[in-house]
Every structure is written in C-alpha cells, then in structure tokens.
Amino acid sequence: MSAGLCASCGSDPAPGASFCWLCGYPLGAGAAPVARIAQASPAAGIGWVVAFVVALFVLSGVGLELAFLWPGLLIPYAAALVPVLVVMTRILYVQRFDFWEGSKSGPAAAASSGAALAPAQPASGATREAPDGSSDVVAKVVTTVAVGMAGTAIAIGLLMLLAVAAFVFLVAICFAAILVLGH
C-alpha cells in the first residue's frame, strides 16, 4: 500500500499502513494530492541524537550517585536501564524503533532516508523479513545488542587511546622540562 513517502507531508509511512501516521493523508490510490511541504521540512536533524546523548549523560550521573550513596539500588537501576539502552541503540542504528514492524527495502526506503521527517532504515541487511511478512524481532534485538556492544567497545577503546596519548604527552613534557631545567 505504502510504496514511498507520504504525498502530503513527506514522512515515511509505516509498512502496510493505509493512512499517514503524521498527517492522516490516505496513502492508497485515488487520493487527491495536496501541496507537499516536505521540501520545506528538512530531516529531523540531530536534535533527537543530542537529546539521547544528554539523557544518557544524566542517567549515568544518577548511576554514579547510586554507586556512591545507595549502592544497593545500582543493580535494579542497571537492569531497568538495559532495555532502554537496547531500544535507544536501535533508534540510533536505524533512526526509529521498529522491532514490531515489517522491514522495508528498495528504492522507497533509500529515497526516504534523506527527506523524510522520520527517515527509513538503511538497506544494510540489518533486518530480515520473515516469510509471513512480520518482522523478525529476535534478529533485530540480537543485531541491536551486537551493534550496541560494538559501539560501546569502540567508544571505550577510543577513550583509552586518548588517555594513553595524554599520558605520553604529559611524560614528554616532563622530560623536556627536566632536560631544559637541568641545563
């Protein structure tokens, strides 16, 4: 039914939907088109990514508080946080939470990735379409967890590299100062 973007607002409709989730425009044939406003509406930008990162920052700060003040609450807090992290990793990965949706592929998804308000997932093979058309939830969850763990490992590795580089830099400055002052 929904082969591409909504002809009215430019958003990316859900697979199999009859009406646009955003403006209510009928997605089937026979609907009279109205002026599109997607051209005037750039993609959502990185505002939601910033929101996610800042929210993670706050939740991490609360986790640190718990570790120092009420350590007994740290484990249930972390357990409650893990599903949120999985969901948010999925949203960062394919730009939307789509565990329960059938996957889209083809030119419609590719075309929507740049212009829609909620861009479609990239055709990267990250999701698989089940034979009955329903989404493969397990595969999506596993992929998301793997991506999240890989991202975390990369971030930790980069931080460690930065720390080592800073340490080497400081040592070099100390040696240089000793050499200069020694003379």
């Binding site: 939601w48 948010m88 730009q95 939307r96 909620a118």
Partner: peptide
C-alpha cells in the same frame, strides 16, 4: 522524555 522520543521515532 525518552518515552516521548521512542514514541515519536516509532511513528506514534
């Protein structure tokens, strides 16, 4: 706030 973000990114 995260719930709102998830809803909006789920086309809801």
């Amino acid at each position: 706030a995260l719930g709102v973000l998830i809803m909006m990114r789920s086309r809801r």
